[in-house]
Design a protein around this nucleic acid. Sequence first.
DNA 1: TTTCATGTAACTTTAGATATTACGATTCCG
DNA 2: CGGAATCGTAATATCTAAAGTTACATGAAA
Lengths: 145, 145
Amino acid sequence: MKRDSRLSSVLHALLHMSEQDGPVTSEVLADCMRTNPVVVRRTMGLLRKAGYVSSAKGHAGGWTISCDLEKLTLRQLHEALGEPAVFAIGNRTETPDCLVEQSVNAILDETFAEAEALLLNRFAAITLADLAREFTSRHKRYREG
Amino acid sequence: MKRDSRLSSVLHALLHMSEQDGPVTSEVLADCMRTNPVVVRRTMGLLRKAGYVSSAKGHAGGWTISCDLEKLTLRQLHEALGEPAVFAIGNRTETPDCLVEQSVNAILDETFAEAEALLLNRFAAITLADLAREFTSRHKRYREG
DNA sequence: TTTCATGTAACTTTAGATATTACGATTCCG
DNA sequence: CGGAATCGTAATATCTAAAGTTACATGAAA
């Protein structure tokens, strides 16, 4: 399976936007993320629907953050992206007739659910502002050698 | 992405084998798992390399469990399968030049690593014998209505 | 009214899992 | 021995979901 990298993408985009005064165009974001403007619009469009960014057409148009980065969490972004499947491992059949397979599914489902809950809780505890601070300190270390 | 369902498959296969006296052929396993005998051989072959099952050719050949199910854990099976990627979500680029993306990757990697560690610890705590008992009680409930 | 943007549908490409085909090697039975 | 049963495995095809691309419509600003 190809991995879904949209969460990673939007984090990258939001941080770049947060360092910018005016709106940032899809083309600029696409360039810095080495992808296509249409892909950027598609993905950022989901964040717009959730109210985290806004977009403007025409001259001096582009994307702008429209929420408080101290309050925006990775979990909210994951939800805005439609809560894509977290795991690349799963059951062969979701509703098997075979009782053996039902037992296997039951145990695996329970285990994956626990791990997913942990992940989502961690996501809920990380704000974009946290990420911005992590970047600032990384950038400082980089400048200092 | 298509999810990797081999762990689920081998658990299913091993439980069926454990209820059988003699060896079980790839064809029988394939039938009950609704897949192809070649797929069964390919996957079971990995367990054979790890020493958990053995295979015999010719008449009355097939697959046999060659370890103690009380000691065989889901984690060992996951390892025998080559430790496939656990997550369907990931970084856009693994070694980005962009410092912003490096920060994003660092935080995501850390978070995914925690969730993966939890999952693997849970896997290490579940034996095939546990699964067999879960099946027995499920089967009992089923027979009783 | 031209240019710069987004919005979005339709289609193509790509990566990875799974399935299939084909054939070789080995073992057992008669 | 000869044939059927069975695994071993390489090569190829299929399927699925993510990502990329093309095309064109819409709207805003100079």
